[in-house]
Design a protein around this nucleic acid. Structure first.
Lengths: 188, 188
DNA sequence: GAAGATTGAGCCCTCAATCTTC
DNA sequence: GAAGATTGAGGGCTCAATCTTC
């Protein structure tokens, strides 16, 4: 029964622009605001171990890939939703801390392989446990049934977007009404 | 019925650490990944108008506050989940573009008031319409009933966190098991 | 020519310090 | 002393260019 900022935002839009249907913000605005809140709340665990979200994400990806905990930077890019340049920087930091090591890829001399060090493995196995306790705390307002339902609805939203890598275009592309579709205005 | 990355992530954790219950990630992981996807998808509209998410957010906040479209930087900070330094930078950019103007606050000479210019008002009224069309597209996988349900569940998650400003501590604070609660180890 | 990794420039953020006014 | 706005330092990101290898 409690209100949040998005409730206020919608009421403001209804007053100022009653011609618009701002209801999509109820879902999308809450997802984006909750994500910001989560970044802040989850950090309380990471920083106990000298990590941040980015480094945790890389370590966790290597850990759950299974022994020998070895992935290419390219694979890490895909999992972590990151550009390759940013991943290089993350790996530099992790290597400097001794949590991962870069090895030459025997099968492809362009590539390298990133491997969890024993210290990195021990660390992430610790952190992920605290991390899950922390996530549990943040989900406390929801019952078991509600969590399943929420997870299902979110999957429906995410899956079409993440499928666009393998299959093609489950969601329509944005059209730009300021440009004519046939390119007649290509003179400019 | 379609799968997403989080489904794969959970299967990996189940294989590697069957002792853990990783199910909280089904909700939290999806919220954070969806937020990243949204940032990318929503930008396609902003950039048509030479804006980014941050500038849109400020303009929209001023617009929906109602005439005379005037707020203090402090109020904008609260709505936009931002530090004051970042807001100063955003306002510098918006002022340089002529979309807002800084005015002296007649009631408090420490503060200023930020006001939407006529150009800024016209622009945001245009952008927000396209923005809602874009959001509608991203919600296409959900039916009307599902959107209401999703919005409700997300509110249950967000509201306790956002209530922590006015009331006190609806959610438990994180405890740090590496430190003794009574401070006996405060010698170090 | 394309793919994988790296580099540097530029951007926007956080954080802490500062200045003014309450 | 506290609150509001600004500043500068530092960090992590994107983007485009580069280098090597396929």
């Amino acid at each position: 029964v409690s209100e949040d900022r998005v409730d206020l935002i919608l009421r403001q839009w209804a007053r100022e622009r009653p011609d618009l249907d701002a209801s999509p913000m109820e879902v999308i605005g809450r997802i984006m605001r909750m994500s910001r809140h989560l970044e802040r709340e989850l950090q309380t665990v990471y920083q106990r171990y000298g990590l941040d979200f980015g480094l945790f994400d890389v370590l966790a990806t290597l850990r759950r890939s299974g022994a020998p905990y070895r992935l290419s930077p390219k694979e890490l890019n895909d999992w972590c939703m990151l550009t390759s340049g940013a991943m290089t920087a993350r790996l530099d930091r992790l290597e400097k801390s001794g949590l991962v090591a870069r090895r030459a890829d025997p099968g492809d001399r362009r590539g390298i392989l990133v491997e969890l060090s024993p210290a990195g493995l021990a660390l992430i196995d610790d952190v992920v446990e605290q991390h899950l306790v922390n996530e549990e705390r943040l989900l406390a307002p929801l019952g078991a049934r509600e969590r399943v339902e929420l997870a299902r609805l979110l999957r429906q939203l995410v899956a079409p977007i993440e499928a666009n890598g393998e299959r093609r275009a489950s969601l329509p592309r944005v059209s730009d009404p300021t440009r004519t579709p046939t390119g007649e205005s290509a003179i400019a």
